[in-house]
Amino acid sequence: MVKNKSRRAAEIEHPSGDPRFNLVDRTLKRFQYQQDALIEVLHTAQEVFGFLEDDLLIYVARQLKLPLSWVYGVATFYHFFSLKPQGEHTCTVCMGTACYVKQAAEIVAMLQAEFGVAPGQTTADDKLSVATARCLGSCGLAPVIVIDSDVLGRQTADSTLAEIKARLSGQIRARQLEAASANDEVEEMEAETL
């Protein structure tokens, strides 16, 4: 047992010494290096590194003792995982039915005309990535877009363009208020229950 443990410890150190690997390791440990946890580990890896580069996939494959092609197959099957780096800002246009019947396609067309990027692409200067989503579940606010994790409802091509331009020029910084405040509450309540 002891011998096993030390070998594991040796493996954990990623040769680059990049501290971000520690976060991936934490998830690996939480799932006891079970092969079934591949998707969970990839989630963490993507969160930490922003995208899944080959080196990272190799690391995950080695740790979980999975074949490389298996890991690659899983990573490319799910749309959430990106094997390419994302732009500084991201704009996701919801293409759910409700948004579609309320002309979300016009927003996508505008983005393509204005910035020359189709869904799934990033501008050449790495400033903006555009994506489409399969319904964000905010159909009451259709059409919906998400810019840098802020959900914006009832958008038009013009309002989207204005918002993106404001963000690209640094006038608006990501709000992310709800996420932050929701977090606070969780902590508060945690304290309360304890």
Binding site: L141, V151, G153, L177, S181
Partner: peptide
């Protein structure tokens, strides 16, 4: 109401 549609149409500010 603290669900996504209300929060993203200004609900956050109301709660504040």
């Amino acid at each position: 109401c603290g669900s996504t549609p209300c929060l993203s149409s200004g609900g956050t500010a109301v709660q504040e």
